[in-house]
């Protein structure tokens, strides 16, 4: 039986996520796993924007910030239950992406990069400076989602680490499934067409601005949900989540693993989240090592790690 690549990717993802805890020597690894999945969600959004539609963003951490702070503020000021706050943050991010995306996406290349960078920095500055609402640089506490309490009432006692491992995994797999579906849909094909050539896409009747905007809004929602989950897991959020470095991290993860493939990008998120834990001994050189890895990947494996490795393997099989 021949599985469609889409289902093969999902199957691999599910198996890895389910099997990984068998090898965990301590509860700490659940925490790393959950962080990987939360980054994986944001990075899946980057695949849709960068990999499918060929647009760059250096400001998506801003949307993660909106998602995160929605979880902290909406339950307090608007009496929205914490679960709904995730949806509220996603809606807010989508609305902002919709409004800002229209003018911004007319830009190309470096100009688009700088414009999105500005957007991200603006959001980060608001979170940093409006201390009477956001708590300023020291951050703010996030109301409990109540999931653990709910499970306890049902007779299930789960540690916080394990719980978030499975919750983040579930959301990431759901997100990956949606992104993989999008790839083969008419919208996905239109995005890939305008990625190849905007002029050609226009001539065959694709509404280029509209499709770009869709990709931008969808990726903003992914970033927002990832920020919300981070906030809910940590129960404390600081403006770092919306910082420039976080934006760069998202792009780096996607590009490193392979920006045109969901599985590749999640692989990139895995490496860049787990690597700092490996490099704690020489933390001072962590950024140097990451930079070096990036440079080497861009020069020798321009498609990203996973697609390049697969291509090599496939090539060998055919010989």
């Amino acid at each position: 039986m021949q599985l469609k690549p889409k289902y093969l990717s999902l199957l691999i993802l599910v198996l890895l996520v389910a099997a990984a805890p068998l090898f965990f020597p301590s509860g700490f690894y659940y925490r790393v796993g959950a962080l990987i999945f939360i980054n994986g969600i944001a990075v899946t959004g980057m695949v849709i924007l960068i990999g499918y539609a060929g647009q760059i963003s250096l400001g998506h951490a801003g949307f993660a910030g909106i998602g995160a702070y929605s979880c902290a503020l909406a339950p307090v000021y608007l009496n929205i239950p914490p679960v709904a706050a995730i949806a509220f943050g996603a809606a807010l991010s989508a609305a902002l992406a919709w409004v800002v995306g229209r003018p911004i996406l007319k830009l190309h290349g470096y100009y688009l990069g700088v414009a999105t960078l500005g957007l991200g920095i603006l959001i980060s500055m608001v979170l940093l400076n409006e201390a009477q609402w956001t708590g300023g640089p020291d951050g703010i506490a996030v109301p409990d989602l109540g999931l653990r309490g709910l499970l306890r009432d049902m007779g299930l006692r789960v540690g916080a680490g394990e719980l978030w491992y499975w919750v983040a995994a579930l959301v990431m797999i759901l997100g990956a499934w949606l992104a993989l579906n999008l790839f083969d849909s008419p919208t996905g094909r239109a995005l890939r067409a305008l990625h190849g050539s905007e002029v050609a896409a226009r001539t065959i009747g694709i509404d280029v601005p509209r499709h770009k905007l869709h990709a931008f809004v969808v990726s903003a929602v992914y970033a927002s949900v990832s920020g919300s989950l981070l906030a809910q897991m940590n129960r404390l959020i600081t403006p770092d989540v919306a910082g420039f470095m976080h934006s760069v991290q998202m792009v780096t993860m996607a590009v490193l693993g392979g920006v045109s493939s969901v599985l590749g990008a999640i692989f990139g998120a895995t490496i860049l989240t787990a690597l700092p834990q490996l490099l704690t001994v020489f933390h001072q050189y962590e950024h140097m090592v990451l930079g070096l890895v990036m440079i080497l990947v861009m020069i020798f494996l321009p498609d990203g790690l996973l697609p390049s490795i697969l291509k090599r393997l496939k090539g060998r099989n055919e010989e």
């Binding site: 509860g27 700490f28 925490r31 790393v32 962080l35 951050g139 680490g161 981070l230 940590n234 404390l236 600081t238 770092d240 989540v241 700092p276 834990q277 704690t280």
Partner: peptide, 10 residues
């Protein structure tokens, strides 16, 4: 703080 939390857990 996110790193600090991870390391504290570790």
């Amino acid at each position: 703080p996110n790193n600090a939390r991870t390391y504290a857990t570790r």
